[in-house]
Amino acid sequence: MDKKKRRLISRTIILLLLGAALVFALYTNFTKDKNESLRKGSEAPNFVLTDMEGKEHKLSDYKGKGVFLNFWGTYCKPCEYEMPYMENQYKNFKDQGVEILAVNVGESDYAVNNFITKHDLTFPVMIDKGREVENAYRVDILPVSFLVDKEGKVIDIITGALTEESIQKHMERIKP
């Protein structure tokens, strides 16, 4: 009788362990994104970059505000496409506690300054010279925008060109 009980317990434990291993395998496989990008809901990696006017921006200083973090390049057409819309929405939302940080993927000052002048951008634009921020955010395809909420969590990651309407919608989502 005792033996039988022991056997039942050991079988249960072994089956539970194996079941847990299987669930774990499925879980890690499905939370892993195809381009190994950041997970939604995870903490946005902190960084410090200096914008083109010489002002330092530390992401953690924006706690309490929503941050629309955009990665872009001057050679990337869809990036250029969404820039004017970002500029428009920036004007609408900057008083409502949503900031735009536009991180260029390591181009020259010359190229970025020319681009800012061309599109009359007023939000902070910064160059990630060492590609470190890009690595931290595992940026693969441009453009990509990370929606960081007031707690500093990445609530969504959007790749591809955005329309003005969708930018507005996303800004609403991170409005504190």
Binding site: I14, L15, L18, A21, L22, A25, L26, N29, F30
Partner: peptide
Amino acid sequence: YSSWWYLIIIGMLGISLLIASI
């Protein structure tokens, strides 16, 4: 190869291997 059903089959194969051996 990363579909849920394929992983489940491989997982079950592993479980079967272990239990049958025990």
